[in-house]
């Protein structure tokens, strides 16, 4: 029986890795992947708590998160493709259209 603290520690580590990836990497695809990491870190936490408390709601919520993540990845990739077609860039530093 793996104790709850392990789940939480793993979740936290994965979340921090994801967050660092989102903040530091410049490649848009990698940023998207890092966002997936953060979402899955949350999933781990949810599943861990679900198991701890014997409540399946957390597992159901995890499945919902996976679904939303899939949709989010589809929309994000679509944006990246049209962005690449339009300007041939994937580096987010060069995509600063919303500047002042």
């Amino acid at each position: 029986m793996v104790p709850l603290s392990h789940y939480l520690a793993l979740g936290a580590v994965v979340f921090v890795i994801g967050a660092a990836g989102v903040l530091m990497r410049r490649n848009a695809i990698i940023i998207l992947m890092s966002i997936e990491l953060m979402l899955n870190a949350v999933n781990i936490t949810l599943v861990g708590f679900s198991r701890q408390w014997g409540d399946l709601t957390g597992q159901v919520l995890a499945i919902f998160v996976i679904t939303v993540a899939a949709a989010e990845a589809a929309v994000g990739l679509a944006i990246l493709i049209s962005l690449n077609r339009d300007r041939s860039v994937l580096n987010v530093d060069e995509v600063n259209l919303l500047k002042w």
Binding site: V22, V92, L98, K99, W100
Partner: peptide
Amino acid sequence: QSGMVQNYLF
């Protein structure tokens, strides 16, 4: 308003 999403996130 730098236009860089990562700054906002940070």
